[in-house]
Design a protein around this nucleic acid. Structure first.
Lengths: 152, 152
DNA sequence: CCCGATTGAGTCGTGCACAACTTATTCGTG
DNA sequence: CACGAATAAGTTGTGCACGACTCAATCGGG
């Protein structure tokens, strides 16, 4: 019998492999790395892809609402949106009814990119290799975790 | 009955809330944000904290082995270690037996910081609010996911 | 109607992450 | 032993993330 896992995970352990946070951090980076070559073919980074997912669902959204959907600050989104605009995928225009707000709208090229993006979730789902039940369970746990940790 | 979750999650969906990758990405950032004030009290960022966890477990480790443990490139670790060295928590010295390799060793201050760090996992475990079973399950799923996605 | 408080977007500075590359050292095979 | 391949660490450039801040527009109570 090996020594790994010989000790039960104690509450206040400082061992790296006992930390859920590290499993989460490592998994997040590994998944993003898996997306990278697929998204590079679309000319997108991973956070840019998430922005496009939101826009394909709801075009003409404010920076504020985009930030709420992705849980990102305007200080992250503003430069990112500027790069997507430079890439010709979207336009930004001040709203007439509230000049503080900026509406993000897809260009035709941005809307068309959706067709190419269809292949991405399929390829990733394949690579993840989880059963539909495991996938659903993981999403449930991660959302519960996010909600708990964000709250108090 | 509401419309959310009315549709079953389809395989190739492009809806943000169907993406496991986003649940993962959001959870990782939310957990890191929860660590931030705790670690700030120790003078550490989150990745720096992970490096210290490894060093508290195994002092005098090479940059290479540190990178293997954390799945980080030397281009990420080198500047990070330089900052920890500037903060007086560790020293870097070329190994005599292989001048290519650099050994990372804790200073007394670095070793002593462990005592203060003991409180961190307890506070976080509390905030996460998962049962021990859910915690173990989440770690299992995340490791399986990481392994699958890293492999092929 | 006014003026202080709030809100929405953006800028700036710091610190990751990672690809591509450089440099120095060591290894391995003829 | 020589010398090309491999390895360890570090540098550079790009793009997030986020806190602290600025600025302009809007809101709301008196």
């Amino acid at each position: 019998m090996n020594t790994a896992e010989a000790e039960p995970t104690r509450e206040g352990s400082l061992l790296l492999d006992d930390q859920l946070c590290f499993a989460l951090y490592a998994a997040s980076r590994a998944v993003t790395a898996r997306y990278r070559p697929l998204l590079e073919a679309l000319g997108l980074t991973y956070p840019q892809y998430l922005v496009m997912l939101v826009l394909w669902e709801q075009d003409s959204i404010s920076v504020r609402d985009l930030g709420a959907a992705l849980q990102l600050e305007s200080s992250t989104l503003s430069p990112l949106l500027k790069r997507l605009e430079a890439g010709g995928l979207l336009r930004r225009e001040r709203r007439a009814e509230d000049e503080r707000s900026v509406a993000i709208r897809l260009t035709d090229a941005g809307a068309r990119l959706r067709d190419q993006a269809e292949a991405v979730p399929l390829a990733i789902g394949d690579a993840m290799g989880l059963t539909p039940e495991e996938d659903a369970l993981a999403k449930r746990l991660l959302r519960e975790l996010t909600a708990n940790v964000t709250a108090g």
